[in-house]
Computed example of a mutant assay.
Amino acid sequence: MLVLTRHATTRAQQRGLPPLIMNWLDTYGARALDRGGAEILYFDNASRRNLERDVGSQAVDRLRPLLDAYTVVADDGTVITSGWRFKRVPRH
């Protein structure tokens, strides 16, 4: 169960990010650290394959445009913000 800040809830609503996608990010998403120490969750090729294996290729194909989402999670597990990726996630 994801815990969202008020800011994250507002941003998810403004950006049209469904709760299902945020839950999939939490379960299947790849993880990278950002410069501030928070964790970025996003779908890479491996996480998309794992998602497809568990929920089926038909569901993933229908929701493919929504898989360009990301969330930023604080150290305590709270979602800080979320949005849509337009470029690669930097990994250090």
Rank of each mutant, 00 (worst) to 15 (best):
A38N: 15
W84D: 03
G56V: 02
S82E: 05
A30P: 04
T10H: 12
N50S: 11
P18V: 10
Q14F: 06
I40W: 00
S47D: 11
A8D: 04
A46G: 09
W84K: 09
Q58V: 11
L4D: 02
H92G: 14
M22F: 02
T27R: 07
D68G: 08
P18K: 13
G56E: 00
D75Q: 14
D44F: 06
N23T: 11
G16N: 14
I40P: 00
T27P: 01
Q13I: 09
V3H: 14
A8R: 03
Q13F: 04
A59H: 12
T71C: 06
P19S: 13
P90A: 04
R62H: 12
G37H: 13
V73Q: 06
R49W: 03
Q13S: 14
G37Q: 12
R31Y: 00
L67C: 07
G29V: 01
L4C: 12
W84I: 06
S57A: 14
I40F: 01
D34V: 06
T5P: 06
L2Y: 00
H7F: 12
W84P: 01
V72S: 03
A38K: 09
R35W: 14
T81I: 06
A32L: 04
G56N: 03
F43K: 10
R48W: 03
T5S: 15
T81R: 02
T27V: 04
R49C: 02
D54K: 05
F43M: 12
